[in-house]
Each structure stands twice: as structure tokens, then as C-alpha cells.
Nucleic acid binder design. Structure first.
Lengths: 207, 207
DNA sequence: TGTACATCAGTGAACGCGCGTTCACTGATGTAC
DNA sequence: TGTACATCAGTGAACGCGCGTTCACTGATGTAC
């Protein structure tokens, strides 16, 4: 902790954390490298020893974010593996949980304008995350009679879109807009209705 | 058309259109007033005769956007008024249709960082749009047995979130991400499953 | 264990430019009489 | 119908600043011998 030396030691990680803080506080547009450097107590030139550009910094954080995201989703998926239904629901919850726990990452991943294919590494991790939901959807639809079974990628797209919409509109309260229901409630109930619509939950077990 | 005079005539509207074009092309972050002025063939100072600031311009366009949005939703709602089910579905479709037809407005309304309560006028129009979906949800849930009837605002929040997620993730294809299903398909099918889950569509009339 | 030296990770100052905004101005328009 | 004048909607130039980025530099670290 008591680091007084000329060399910082772990500036790269410190810069990433400062960036996450600033992005959470003021949004990705208002973020400046100079301020991140200031928070890390180094000169404005120092970040360039670790990142080629501001964009490069953003891409790296987004990549790490998708890496954690995919890991979290996989873990949620595996843990509830006994039941395809539970596993599917778990990925939805993991989506929101990630957005809650890592808001800075989430913002850089989905709201900063960083294209998801900016880098092979980034594209790969983003794809990996999406693949988990797809796998969960594949196992889920097996429980549906074949003649009325929807394509699994359609189901995963539905849940991905719904989760994203819930996070964007209800997980942060940017305006004074007070909502009656928490994002968690909305995700839970919405998925419940959806799963009943797929015929995978009893119609009368409404909570 | 042949306007050669010193005075522009309808610069305000021309600036708004130039702004919409630029925002669609490059996103709200890359937009500059100077470039909008250039497209409108006036000096960089001219916009300030019509808007107090760049932010003011954004807010005004977002307000107009929500005004059109609310009108469109109301029209869709009224037109399909015979059946609560059709009316409800129509608001969902109107959401996506608006995003398609007025992408610049949509971006400024939802992705530019303009707070929805930046101005009383803006807040009012945004509220009006939301209210239409809520009214549609109110009429819809009347068809559900009282003991298993969800709160209408919850239903409207679900559909608002789902529509928004579909637009954000599938209506534009920013990355090379080619999707199997169009945004329209995803919205249609997702709403279908959801409505079946509410018990408002027959389970076997899957399309 | 000590010394020479390459390499690494910082500094401080400056650059250049773009962008939002302002200011004194001027040409065009509309209205009173 | 013509003229004087207020008002409106532009211009052109400049400002100021913030921000990303670069450059020559220097202190610290690690390694070969």
C-alpha cells in the first residue's frame, strides 16, 4: 500500500479501476484519460505505457467484462444444471446480476459505442457469453412437443433482448422516474409469463 | 428551393434535419454543431439564433420525437381498439415501427444521454408515450381471471422492456452480427409467447 | 557480493486541433406613417 | 406608394479550453558477469 517509489507497480489495474469508477459516475462520454491518470496519481502520459489509446483502454475493459460475464453465465448455467428450466432462468438472472455488480463494465460493453467486434479477443468473449444463453435455450426447448417447438436461437434472442431491456430501462434510475417494480421483479415475472407461454410452467402456479 | 437570400427562411427545421442525418450516420457522440451548420450551408454561429446550445437542440429533437412517438402509439392503440388484445399488440409493433422510421429521433431519445426530464415539455411527452402502453395493458388484463391477474403496469413494463431490448440489440446491425431473425419476427414471436403465458392466446394456435 | 548496463515505467512540457460559444457587425424584412 | 426605422436572422472572426497524444528525458529495476 505504502508505495512511494517512482514506479507505480500495478498502474494498469489501477487505471482500469479508475476508469470504471469514472464511467459509472459520469458516463463513458464524459470520461477523460487525463482524469483517470489524475486519480491514479500519475502524469497524463503514463497511461500510454499500458494502453495504445483511450479506445484501446475501453476495448480492453469491455473484453475483460465479457470474459467475466461469460464466466458468470456459465457458472449459473452449470450450477442449475439438474433442470433445464432452472438453468435457463439462471442465465437470465445472471445477466441482471452482472449488470448490477459490474455497472462500469456493463456500460463499457453495451453503452459506450465500442463495437463488439473491435478486436478478435473482444468478439470471442462476447460470442462466448451469447453461446451460453443459446445452449440453455437448446436444452430448454427439448421439453416442448416437437410440432410446436420454437427454434432455440429465437428463444435465446427473446431472453437476451428482454434482459437487456430490463437493465437499460429499470436497473438504473437515471431520471426521477420511480418505478413500482424492481428490475429483479420485472425480470422474474416476465420470464415466468414467457415460460408459461412456452408451456413449460403450469398456468395455475402463478406466484 | 432556389433560396439565395441572406435569410435562410426555415433554418430551424433544416438544422434539425441535418442533425438527424448526422446522428444516424455517426452517432450522437460524434455529432458536432459545426458540421450541422455546414450541411445547412450557414455559418457556425447561425444555429444560436434558434437554439441556445447544442444540448438545447438535442432536447428539442428528443421532445419532438416523443411527441411523434406518443401520437403513433395512440393512433395504433385507437385503430385496433375493437380488441384489447389487438390494441396491445399494436403498441408493441408501433414501438419498433417508430424506431425503424425515425432512427435519428430514437437515438436522441434513448441513446444520446439526454435525460428524459431535461425539460418539462420533454418529460410530458415521454410520459404520454408511456401512458399509452399502460392504458393498453389495463384493458388487456381485464380479460384475465381476477385471482391470477397481474398488475397492468407490470405488464406494460414487460412489453416496454422487451420492445426496447429488441430494438437495441436487433433492429440495427452495428457489428457484423448477422442474426437469423429480424427484429420484427422476434418482437412478434416474443409477444406471442408472452400473451400465451398470460392465458390470452390459445396454447395450440402457435404460428 | 558488487558493478555495468539494458530495459522498463515513469515525468513534464508541449502540440495541435476541434469544438462550443460569443461578439460586433450587416444585410434583409416588415411595418408605421 | 415611398421612406424611415426597428427588428430579425444571418456573417466572419476569434476565444478559450479541454483533451488525446507525443517526445525527449530520467529514475528505478533486474540481470550478466
Amino acid at each position: 500500500m505504502a508505495r512511494r517509489s517512482y514506479h507505480h507497480g500495478n498502474l494498469k489495474q489501477t487505471l482500469i479501476e479508475a476508469t470504471l469508477d469514472l464511467v459509472e459516475e459520469r458516463g463513458p462520454q464524459a470520461f477523460t484519460l487525463a482524469e483517470a491518470a489524475k486519480r491514479a496519481k500519475v502524469s497524463v502520459a503514463a497511461p500510454y505505457r499500458h494502453f495504445r489509446s483511450k479506445q484501446d483502454l475501453f476495448v480492453e475493459i469491455a473484453r475483460q467484462g465479457f470474459e467475466m460475464f461469460a464466466d458468470l453465465m456459465e457458472y449459473a448455467f452449470e450450477s442449475a444444471n439438474a433442470s433445464p428450466l432452472a438453468a435457463f432462468e439462471a442465465t437470465g438472472h445472471a445477466y441482471l446480476a452482472f449488470a448490477r455488480r459490474y455497472p462500469g463494465h456493463y456500460i463499457l460493453m453495451f453503452e459506450s459505442g465500442v463495437p463488439l467486434n473491435a478486436t478478435p479477443g473482444l468478439a470471442h468473449e462476447a460470442q462466448r457469453a451469447k453461446a451460453v444463453v443459446q445452449r440453455a435455450a437448446e436444452r430448454l426447448v427439448v421439453g416442448i412437443p416437437e410440432d410446436s417447438r420454437p427454434p432455440p436461437t429465437m428463444v435465446s434472442d427473446h431472453i437476451w433482448a428482454f434482459s437487456h431491456g430490463v437493465v437499460e430501462l429499470f436497473a438504473r434510475n437515471p431520471d426521477g422516474t420511480r418505478t413500482l417494480f424492481s428490475a429483479e421483479d420485472l425480470l422474474e415475472t416476465g420470464m415466468g409469463v414467457y415460460l408459461r407461454g412456452l408451456g413449460l410452467l403450469e398456468m395455475d402456479t402463478r406466484k
